[in-house]
């Protein structure tokens, strides 16, 4: 999976994952310096280079693009006010801001779980507003992975079965789902916990199962809403390392976090307040020009 490179045909990339996965993980994980994730170097290699490689082909759209996206709840509560945000393929960004500032609302809209009241959303080039609910579901199954604060694992079913659910709605057969689920669990370092049920796993292990479930489908975009929120520092660090690895392999990753250390360790930070983006380190930064270069 680490060896994954974005190709012009998005779906073809998925097949390349399992074989290369096991031998590439050890290469990256030991390199992680405690306290500070080696973000810059691997990211530049894994995140930017592939985009550079296909820069000439203008056909690779941003993974997500919000234009004037607002969300108003009855009240009225303005959860989101005219947000513009573009996430390019292979990016890694932190979404920060005070409680109630609209972070989760925006993540749900990016993940097509929710539709904006006004404004447009494009995911992988598709105009979300123009897609039926069924096709949005297909879009999620194919392009988007989710990780939640509270894991949302299915109790009473073992780790492999839980991870298998990540491929169920992409139309993958049971045998292949199982094989890929095992590989994914090995990738997150849970090769020795395949048959364990959620009640038999620690919080950190549960979140790693959830990450395996999100990455088993090889999404272009992984959305994580406070993935370390329910974990201790050490478990949180392992989870962040996994997200870094995933990003290094080409997946765009958005992480909502209240943890300053985590936020600071990511290459791009988007700050929310009262439903608005008040600061975006990637917008005027050095990264965007690089994309077009």
């Amino acid at each position: 999976m680490i060896a994954r490179r974005r190709s012009a045909v998005p779906d073809g990339a998925a097949d390349a994952i399992p074989a290369a996965a096991s031998d590439t993980i050890p290469a990256v994980t030991p390199g992680a310096v405690p306290g500070r994730v080696p973000s810059a170097a691997p990211h530049a290699a894994g995140g930017v280079a592939p985009r550079g490689a296909v820069a000439g082909a203008a056909s690779v759209p941003p993974v997500v693009e919000l234009r004037g996206a607002s969300k108003t709840h009855p009240g009225p509560v303005h959860a989101l006010r005219a947000v513009d945000l573009t996430v390019e393929a292979g990016e890694l960004l932190a979404i920060v801001g005070p409680s109630g500032s609209g972070k989760s609302t925006m993540l749900n809209i990016m993940g097509t779980l929710d539709r904006p009241t006004t404004g447009t959303v494009h995911v992988a080039g598709w105009d979300v507003g123009a897609l039926s609910d069924a096709r949005l579901s297909a879009l999620r199954a194919r392009h988007i992975g989710f990780v939640f604060q509270h894991f949302h694992l299915s109790a009473g079913r073992d780790a492999v079965d839980n991870v298998c659910d990540g491929l169920l709605y992409a139309g993958v057969g049971l045998r292949e789902r199982r094989a890929r689920a095992r590989t994914a669990l090995e990738r997150v370092g849970l090769g020795h916990r395949l048959g364990h049920r959620p009640t038999e796993l620690s919080g950190g292990e549960k979140q790693r199962v959830a990450i395996a479930r999100a990455l088993v489908g090889a999404p272009d975009l992984l959305l994580a809403d406070e993935p370390t929120g329910a974990l201790d520092t050490a478990s949180g660090k392992i989870v962040m390392e996994l997200l870094h690895e995933l990003n290094a392999a080409g997946t765009a990753v958005c992480v909502i976090t209240h943890d300053h250390d985590i936020a600071d360790s990511l290459p791009r930070r988007v700050r929310f307040r009262d439903g608005e983006v008040v600061d975006d380190s990637g917008r005027a930064g050095s990264r965007l020009p690089e994309v077009g270069a």
């Binding site: 779980l113 949302h152 709605y169």
Partner: peptide
């Protein structure tokens, strides 16, 4: 919650 998760994983309403 399971239903929400399945929808996030790509389950259609029909599924």
């Amino acid at each position: 919650q399971e239903i929400g998760l399945r929808r996030a994983l790509g389950a259609t309403r029909g599924a």
